[in-house]
Design a protein around this nucleic acid. Structure first.
Lengths: 233, 233
DNA sequence: GAGTGGTCTAGACCACGTT
DNA sequence: ACGTGGTCTAGACCACTCT
């Protein structure tokens, strides 16, 4: 008769989400303890734990030992964005992909790059400038510094078949990085590369990538006018 | 003698991360099954599962039933960014916070806002423009459309003590939204608001916030020149 | 069909922070 | 001190998907 279906952690999570949305449980308020919720839903405490842990990771709940679990005051505090390969991003929009290497040489990095890459002034790095094209039109212009001691084999690579972006992703391990998003006003040189007018506002991503504490590469991507980065919660 | 310490899921996760960083396990390769790893580490399979699930959520691993677990081809594919209150962001930089409401009136939303908010043309919305200041200097200029039927009490609010941003976070539940980041070229009006030159590149965030499927508000934030959004993996 | 990850359970112990 | 969340275990069954 009372053969109930198993309760999944998603069921619990959805129910909790709904109670928060409906303001049964208001921001800042404590919600019942795991044990009580387990009893209410008729499942094991670990199932409730799984559900609530996910909500805490998403920033919806705040949990503290001994104190309990409360609804976060600002329930939407984090969002994720995807970091696609440039090729994948362009092809994902249904455009044809191409890239051109404009410059490739060893150079001493300027002070700002030294600081970002945590290297001394006297160590030459590989500097590569690449233009990526979607349907033949400039999509993004990349200026990249590569730490050659951390990327064996790069000195023999001309990036004609694989772009610096693709080559590094294929050949070198990464485990972390910094990202800075900003807007710049196009200089005449940048405008010429991206086929736009000087003075236009352009979206910029600066990224420094690391592996096991070592800096691999530092890159600036200047996107074409009108570029948008999108994400959803 | 052989009283080993308990193995935590973090231990397993760090070990797996390290093997990937060191390229013992290369991108695209399968790694051992959960059961084998559990035996190797001397812990329960659920502990291994917890560790690997976290890595899969982070995009480091790809897991499929029956097929197994493999190292992702592009190990760093996602990043999180924080969405602070504007007040918290300004004060977090050690600056004094202030805001000024420039405009507050009921209006019919223009077509682009109608599309974003999924409403018909004939429904008036509350339109509020607010300038946020850090140390007295313009920090970000906000143009916001508010769905009054979803935000009871808003018609009596003048946003002098609480900014629209703060008021909505305090009074209304959210559970999702869309974010679009882009760059614009400052119009003369925008330049005047932000005390910058017309034609400068400015960082822009468009956000539409929802609760239980209903659109609450749609906002455009135009930041001062030089603004950067930062995140780290 | 069979093997893999996904999940649930019931119980246990522990870490930590509030009181 | 003690109560709460955090975690681990051992076992079980299930869902999915590859062959």
């Amino acid at each position: 008769m009372s053969r109930d279906a198993r309760i999944s952690w998603q069921t619990v999570q959805n129910e909790v989400r709904q109670r928060i949305s409906q303001r049964d449980w208001k921001p800042g308020e404590f919600i019942p303890h795991e044990a009580d919720l387990a009893q209410e839903f008729g499942c094991a405490r670990s199932t409730v734990n799984r559900a609530l842990r996910g909500l805490a990771e998403a920033g919806v709940l705040e949990r503290r030992r001994r104190a309990g679990t409360r609804v976060a005051l600002n329930p939407v505090r984090r969002a994720e964005f995807a970091i696609p390969l440039i090729r994948a991003e362009i092809e994902g929009k249904g455009q044809s992909y191409a890239h051109t290497v404009c410059l490739r040489e060893m150079r001493l990095p300027p002070p700002d790059i030294q600081a970002r890459m945590q290297v001394s002034a006297s160590v030459p790095h590989l500097f590569v400038q690449t233009l990526y094209l979607g349907n033949g039109a400039p999509y993004v212009f990349e200026s990249r510094w590569i730490n050659v001691t951390a990327t064996p084999g790069v000195e023999r690579e001309d990036f004609s078949t694989f772009s610096p972006n693709e080559w590094l992703v294929r050949e070198v391990a990464f485990d972390g990085g910094d990202f800075t998003f900003s807007a710049i006003t196009a200089t005449p040189a940048e405008a010429a590369m991206l086929s736009c007018r000087a003075g236009e506002g352009l979206f910029v991503l600066d990224r420094t990538t690391r592996n096991a504490g070592q800096v691999i590469t530092s890159v600036r991507l200047v996107f074409h006018p009108g570029y948008q980065m999108y994400t959803r919660i």
